[in-house]
Computed example of a mutant assay.
Amino acid sequence: MKQIVSTDRAPAAIGPYAQAVATGGLLFTSGQLPIDPATGAFPEGIAAQTRQSLLNVKAILAEANVGMDRVIKTTVFLNDMNDFAAMNEVYATFFGEGGFPARSAVEVARLPKDALVEIEVIAMLG
């Protein structure tokens, strides 16, 4: 059985998908764009957009009573791989405790709403 996880502390889905789904002891988030849920806008620059994407992930995890230390896998989609180092600096501040999760980082041709970054995670429940 699956459970849909949703919170107003992260941006609402902009299509026919859930913010996250919990099943089999795991939580799978949809890719989180750097949309500020309070304003609906993107911050400027890769560092600020990475931070906002991860704050959105963190809010969804919190709704499921899961901390960032329970994240086991992330996928980072970058509009430009030249932003990798700047993204990495911010990313590291969210995953310092409990060890870093496994991760893939890929450059894509384009992201929704022309974002610079989108991040999805898989986390352990409980």
Rank of each mutant, 00 (worst) to 15 (best):
58 K>L: 01
86 A>Q: 15
55 L>K: 11
99 G>W: 09
59 A>I: 01
26 L>G: 08
59 A>E: 08
52 Q>Y: 03
101 P>N: 03
16 P>E: 14
5 V>D: 02
28 F>K: 01
6 S>F: 11
29 T>K: 00
98 G>D: 08
42 F>K: 05
22 A>F: 06
86 A>P: 06
96 G>E: 07
87 M>C: 14
101 P>R: 10
6 S>H: 13
11 P>S: 05
42 F>E: 05
18 A>Y: 06
118 E>P: 00
63 E>V: 13
40 G>K: 02
17 Y>N: 07
105 A>T: 15
77 F>K: 09
2 K>C: 04
117 V>L: 01
24 G>N: 15
64 A>I: 09
34 P>V: 03
94 F>V: 00
82 N>K: 14
52 Q>A: 05
19 Q>V: 05
8 D>W: 02
21 V>L: 12
41 A>F: 09
3 Q>I: 14
95 F>N: 10
71 V>E: 09
32 Q>F: 09
67 G>P: 12
106 V>Y: 07
124 M>A: 13
123 A>D: 00
114 D>L: 07
58 K>H: 12
97 E>L: 13
35 I>L: 11
7 T>I: 04
28 F>D: 09
120 E>D: 04
21 V>H: 02
41 A>Y: 07
110 R>Y: 08
19 Q>R: 04
31 G>E: 08
48 A>V: 06
115 A>M: 01
34 P>N: 06
84 F>V: 12
118 E>Y: 10
89 E>L: 13
41 A>M: 11
13 A>E: 09
69 D>Y: 08
91 Y>G: 04
12 A>H: 15
71 V>D: 03
105 A>D: 03
31 G>P: 06
104 S>L: 11
105 A>S: 12
116 L>W: 00
12 A>V: 13
28 F>V: 09
113 K>L: 15
23 T>N: 10
114 D>S: 11
125 L>M: 13
6 S>Q: 14
85 A>T: 12
66 V>A: 08
38 A>T: 06
51 R>Y: 10
71 V>R: 08
103 R>S: 12
16 P>R: 14
33 L>G: 06
101 P>T: 07
40 G>F: 00
112 P>A: 10
119 I>D: 03
21 V>R: 02
65 N>V: 12
56 N>S: 04
56 N>M: 08
122 I>K: 01
117 V>I: 10
33 L>P: 07
29 T>G: 07
72 I>L: 11
